[in-house]
Amino acid sequence: MSTGSSAFTPQPSDDTSATRQFATFSLDRYYFGVEVLMVQEVIRYQDMTRVPLAPGVVQGLINLRGQIVTAVDLRRRLGLPDRAEGVQPMNVVVRTSDGVVSLLVDEIGDVVETAHADFERAPETISGAARELVTGVYKLKDRLLLALDVERSTALDGEERRN
């Protein structure tokens, strides 16, 4: 189920007070979040093995304590400009239906609590790929938190999305 759908239909009041925790991170000038329950861990930049012929969004393979994890560059996935030379991304390791995947992000933020009442569908101003890959936006006090759709972000375009 899409996390956002309930916000568009009138809901009993107790639902709007329900809160969710998001692990947040920054990408370019955006502020993204992934639901905490999906995050396995956050680790520093790791050496990785590049995969020839792989789609551009796949940065490489990481050895995570004996487990081989695909690292997805979220900037590329979201169609954002590449990171400046020499800037090392962080790994947000998330669990998906296809196993563990690492999301490469710029910087790690705090874990924030969000209320359902603050949820809204992604505004039109977000461009192209990014719009596809967020379930919606939480209006926080000082800024907007884009809730990332992890499943879609870690699947290729055109591939059937598994729920």
């Binding site: 093995t49 995969v51 020839p52 012929l53 792989a54 789609p55 969004v57 796949v58 393979l61 050895n63 004996g66 487990q67 081989i68 994890v69 695909t70 997805v72 296809d98 196993g99 995947v101 870690t154 699947a155 290729l156 591939e159």
Partner: peptide, 18 residues
């Protein structure tokens, strides 16, 4: 070890190892 679905399109690799 199998490769993730993001790499399914790269058919020349049968998997990976450490």
């Amino acid at each position: 070890k199998p490769l993730g679905r993001l790499l399914k399109s790269v058919v020349v690799f049968a998997g990976a190892t450490i």
